[in-house]
């Protein structure tokens, strides 16, 4: 079975009210998860995104610059790229995401590959 790349997109979640100890425990879960993926040899990349940013769009030929984003619910906090044999397998890997309990969610998407002609 050929491997494909999948992107995990992390949405929302709030760390409000976590104590320093809880922050550290959460971080340890993140390290544990990444380490597990690395040990399997499937972790390819990952980045965290700052909360600040702009939303750029165009209306009637004019640029509209919006933001920064007020609501963190929809905010993308970061992403991973992992290798998996199937979407199901990728979803299985995403189940270790540490922030479900903080209200976060993971979008799992296959990276499209344009076949060589």
């Amino acid at each position: 079975m050929s491997k494909k790349d999948y992107m995990f997109i992390f949405h929302g979640g709030s760390y409000d009210g976590l104590s320093p100890d809880e922050v550290q425990k959460n971080m340890e879960k993140w390290f544990g998860w990444i380490e597990k993926l690395r040990n399997k040899g499937v972790y390819k990349a990952g980045e965290a995104l700052e909360k600040t940013g702009k939303m750029l769009s165009q209306k009637n030929g004019k640029y509209i610059v919006d933001g920064p984003f007020a609501e963190s619910k929809e905010l993308v906090g970061g992403f991973f790229i992992v290798e998996a044999g199937s979407l199901d397998e990728a979803v299985e890997m995403a189940k270790d995401y540490p922030d479900f309990s903080n209200g976060g969610s993971v979008q799992v998407r296959e990276v499209r590959v344009i076949p060589e002609p």
Partner: peptide, 15 residues
């Protein structure tokens, strides 16, 4: 600000 610093660490260090 300490809380913010800890959260920043949480969001940066693992990556």
């Amino acid at each position: 600000v300490v809380q913010e610093a800890l959260l920043k660490a949480l969001q940066q260090w693992p990556y």
